[in-house]
Design a protein around this nucleic acid. Structure first.
Lengths: 247, 247
DNA sequence: CGATTTTTTGAATGTTTTTGAAAGAAAAGG
DNA sequence: CCTTTTCTTTCAAAAACATTCAAAAAATCG
């Protein structure tokens, strides 16, 4: 484990929680007390954090990554376009899986009044489905505060007891070599399971996702149908895939 | 638990409620009397609060935007009063069940920053818990669109795999003869199961619930602890129950 | 390529801070 | 008044701290 890796990890921890404990860092990083202390000292000298007895705390001016709300307004029209096409794929009496996330959320108003059953892992999606009077189920599990999605063994085993006509998922990255990826490993497991339990898996992706690679793989490109609004704008690499469809 | 974490929590508490009790802080933070006293002393020296007999009080704010938050905290509604008392019952490291509903939802900001694990059936509560960065789990199941609570066999069997130190529930009716009742039979089953799986079950009820009877029974009065803000106003019938407590 | 220097690491040392408990003083409440 | 609760002070144990030193790893140079 390199010095830079450790220090980056410490700062990432501090973005999630206002204080980190030295002992937790020792076990998490597998380094000795001395090493962690040196890292904390250097990071403090660099003005990245403040040391406190027992660990370190985040500086007050920490800027956060784009929140759920900010992301929601960014690619709105493109997302709505894909969502409309995705909702049109759903036949009557179908049972579908709806991933957590703002992209799939756009499908909900377009499913209102339809005879469909929806299973989701997104807390916000569950709320919207209830508002739209759609028959909805949420899978139990631990709630990730960043995305408000349920994850973990309970969610996965809940998925394995079901089968879906269609699964609709979002993604953070689509790459010819590295496949479909998402930042969170636990969410990746959930997505993979949902794909396995569905007859047809559909990924909703706007142009900004192509060529991107995130942390955790959840499927290869040819395992799913990909809907995108702007096939022409993309690198010609993606033209070889018949399962990437323009809407 | 680090010094900074404790002191941060104490100040956050004082934003919610004008006074904090030393004993409540002890159970909430899992620290000794001496430690809490030292924290209060340091925070007083730093000009962050004023110590009073039995705890500490918030300083009179002369800052920018006092209107919204102070009004919300100074004139505590009946529900917030009960929620505050209920949250004070929760010790550190506890695992609690939080019923769906607006009454129990009021407990969430008062649990923020606490070392507790919360399991809920309320979709909206799950969202609020995630916002407050509280470790939260939602039970899977069908979502009732009226209340956005999960119900059904999946929810009940999920409950039966767990155990809680405390369960906090709302109710629609409290009656000496007909017990605790709620309009929906499926939600009643969930509440009953939650009570059975908990060491102590606590029902939060304002005065309007007493004497009312709804459709489905979920518990007898003496099976739970009932918190209410206005014991004196109630019919003398309820004075016979030692488990009905004024807050 | 090997030898030497520099950097990084983990353990050992003694010091400081934090913590919880105890005992008596002060305050609150009947 | 007495009883109970809360408060302050003191003390020893535990945890966390800075510092030093030698071994291991990496980089540099002849």
């Amino acid at each position: 484990m390199l010095t830079e890796e450790r220090q980056r990890f410490i700062l990432e921890q501090l973005e999630q929680t206002p204080v980190v404990k030295l002992k937790d860092l020792m076990t998490a990083l597998g380094a000795s007390e001395s090493t962690i202390r040196r890292d904390l000292g250097e990071l403090e000298d660099a003005g990245k954090l403040r040391r406190i007895h027992g660990g370190a705390e985040r500086l007050p001016q920490t800027k956060s990554e784009p929140s759920v709300q900010e992301k929601a307004t960014q690619h709105l029209t493109a997302k709505a376009q894909i969502a409309k096409a995705a909702a049109a794929m759903v036949p009557a009496h179908a049972c579908i899986f709806l991933d957590a996330g703002t992209t799939t959320a756009q499908m909900i108003p377009m499913l209102a009044g339809r005879d469909v059953t929806v299973v989701t892992t997104g807390v916000d999606n569950a709320s919207a489905l209830a508002d739209a009077n759609i028959e909805a189920y949420i899978l139990g599990g631990k709630i990730k505060s960043a995305t408000k999605a349920t994850v973990g063994a309970e969610t996965v085993s809940g998925l394995q007891k079901r089968h879906f006509d269609y699964a609709f998922l979002g993604t953070n990255g689509i790459h010819p070599k590295f496949g479909l990826t998402t930042p969170d490993a636990e969410e990746a497991v959930v997505k993979t399971t949902a794909i396995n339990q569905s007859h047809t898996a559909v990924v909703l992706a706007d142009a900004s996702k192509f060529g991107e690679v995130s942390n955790a793989l959840f499927a290869k490109i040819n395992q799913v149908v990909i809907l995108t609004p702007s096939l022409a704008q993309l690198s010609p690499v993606y033209a070889d895939y018949p399962n990437i469809q323009e809407v």
